[in-house]
């Protein structure tokens, strides 16, 4: 009971902090002082008090999309276990639900972008959909490797496969490949630097940011909060592969989980600082590499 409570509290409260840590890391690399760690929370609070301006040509889809996206991501967050603890919800086959909850969120973000009728937003939506075609197979290959390893189709058990059934040692080679693939996926899905620059404000080069240009006030707040939650959920999936440790004491495990999450945020910040953005036409090479990594991991496992 207490673990479920902490799970939901972290899922709701922690995601903006990850963005703060990423920004702080980038600022330190650039020699700046950077915005305060809690700046994303201030931004979200500021946005909730602003007015909403809604374009006259939009339909209900435009207003509903941020809410649906956020809900889908929150449900996905409930399916994913955090650290060595059990997820609050889980049933056979929920890995498909997980993948398509992410898909549903993406579908409504892109539909809302198309709904505005803006050429830029349509372009962003097209890009998002194109790259999603290649990141989804990678995700499924990664989940397939874990499902094969654990012999279970419940997301909660399957992500614990490196922890319980075999231990990190036994199947290290496929897990290394899956970890590399999932990290690429983490960067691509959350529009981080080699794929998309969250700070850019040039419409021609943006992917995610350009789709939400017309959202304002609380709606924009929901979109930003949803993006932070997606980062949190995918990072906790990634953590199951790279840090499958368990001390046995609940308090210590929760602390370790929070620390590891912040570690992932720092790692993303470092990647963003040392890498340049890829050209748009090279992004699919990166995503194909992610598919190859996860797929090759599967081949190694069944060989």
């Amino acid at each position: 009971m207490r673990d479920i409570f902490i799970h939901i509290a972290l899922l709701l409260g922690m995601p903006p902090l990850l963005l703060g840590v990423i920004n702080k890391t980038k600022a330190l690399f650039a020699g700046r002082k950077g915005p305060p760690l809690l700046q994303p929370y201030y931004d979200l609070f500021k946005l909730t008090r602003k007015h909403v301006v809604i374009s006259e040509v939009t339909t209900w889809v435009f207003t509903a999309a941020p809410v649906i996206t956020l809900t889908a991501l929150l449900i996905a967050g409930i399916l994913v276990p955090q650290g060595p603890f059990r997820a609050p919800l889980g049933f056979t086959g929920d890995l498909i639900l997980f993948a398509y909850l992410l898909g549903l969120g993406r579908f409504f973000t892109t539909t809302a972008a198309l709904d505005t009728g803006s050429a830029f937003e349509g372009m962003g939506a097209a890009r998002e959909a194109t790259f999603a075609c290649m990141s989804e197979p990678a995700l499924f290959f990664a989940l397939l490797v874990l499902a094969k390893m654990s012999g279970s189709l419940v997301l909660g058990d399957l992500l614990h496969a490196p922890l319980v059934t075999t231990g990190w040692e036994a199947e290290a080679a496929p897990l290394v490949l899956v970890a590399v693939g999932l990290f690429i996926l983490l960067l691509a899905e959350n529009c981080r630097i080699p794929v998309d620059d969250p700070n850019t404000h040039l419409e021609l080069t943006m992917i995610h940011e350009v789709m939400v240009l017309d959202h304002s006030g609380p709606l924009l707040g929901l979109v930003l909060y949803g993006a932070a939650i997606k980062l949190f959920v995918l990072s906790s999936v990634f953590l199951h592969i790279v840090a499958p440790f368990q001390s046995g004491r609940a308090g210590l495990d929760w602390l370790a989980f929070v620390g590891e999450m912040l570690g992932v945020a720092v790692a993303i910040g470092v990647v963003e600082s040392v890498m340049a953005r890829l050209q748009m036409r090279h992004v699919n090479y990166l995503l194909i590499a992610a598919i190859l990594f996860c797929g090759f991991g599967f081949v190694l496992l069944v060989r």
Partner: peptide, 21 residues
């Protein structure tokens, strides 16, 4: 053997990276 395999898989990944960068 598994740690060795993990290291070798990393070596293979680095090979491809060297070709692609």
């Amino acid at each position: 053997n598994s740690l060795l395999n993990a290291a070798l898989v990393l070596v293979l990944a680095l090979n491809l990276f060297a070709l692609g960068t």
